[in-house]
Design a protein around this nucleic acid. Structure first.
Length: 222
DNA sequence: ATCCCGAGGG
DNA sequence: CCCTCTGGAT
């Protein structure tokens, strides 16, 4: 099966089984989304969602976050990965949005990545979700799942994965395909012991074809 | 011990 | 390219 055939199968499967895939991060406006995505680096969305409601109550918009003391921000995000870095990044990000962009979140990848704490992955998420730009954010799930299924070949970096995926995902499906791969990686194609037994992508999966097709359930359980 | 919607710095 | 940051869940 070629990559194109794999993706056609996968699109059809997800369109039937998860036609409304979207982020699980809690947010109600672009400001909150940007903060939540910055916080989500190397941390589960579930954990981020435990802290953001109170954080957003205390710092409800970009100006209030720009004025914040990073040590106070730290108190709210203490249970998240890399809290010191992220507290510094959040305040620095807000200050730069205020000073360099008039308080408006810039909506190009090139501008977004100039903000503290915002790299290519976060910039792709924001431009895709907020502005419907056909940008593919590659996180740990997208990277792993794409490689495992066979949507990418020899992609050693997130950027390589991004470019390979964009070659055959139709522009109008980039947004939802990103979320399909994330959610599949989170709940089925997990990093350790992927749940191939409940996975509907088996017919199109390179990993399954190569590693599990000819082994028994009992073998897999060992 | 490994993983979670990475980013910054050397 | 490498390293560091750094808490909670499995």
């Amino acid at each position: 099966m070629t990559r194109k055939e794999r993706f056609d199968f996968i699109i059809k499967y997800f369109q039937e089984h998860n036609p409304n895939a979207e982020t699980e991060l809690l947010y109600s406006n672009p400001y909150e989304l940007l903060v939540a995505v910055i916080l989500s680096a190397q941390c589960t969305d579930k954990r981020v969602n435990m802290t953001t409601p109170e954080l957003f109550r205390r710092f409800p918009d970009m100006p209030s976050l720009a004025r914040a003391d990073k040590d106070e921000v730290l108190v709210y995000i203490k249970s998240i990965s890399y809290p010191n870095n992220k507290a510094k990044h959040l305040v620095g990000m807000a200050q730069k949005v205020m000073s360099d962009f008039g308080g408006n979140i810039p909506m190009t990848v090139a501008e977004l990545i100039t903000l503290p704490g915002v790299g290519r992955k976060t910039a792709n998420v924001i431009t895709s979700v907020v502005d419907a730009q056909p940008n593919m954010a590659v996180d740990t799930h997208v990277f792993r799942v794409a490689a495992r299924i066979g949507l990418t070949v020899n992609a050693k970096t997130p950027l390589a994965t991004e470019l390979q995926l964009l070659k055959f995902i139709p522009k109008d499906l980039v947004y939802i395909a990103h979320h399909w791969l994330i959610l599949h990686g989170r709940y089925v194609c997990v990093a350790r012991n992927p749940k191939c037994d409940i996975c509907g992508l088996k017919p199109a999966c390179k990993y399954y074809q190569q590693h599990l097709k000819n082994t028994t359930i009992a073998d897999n359980a060992l």
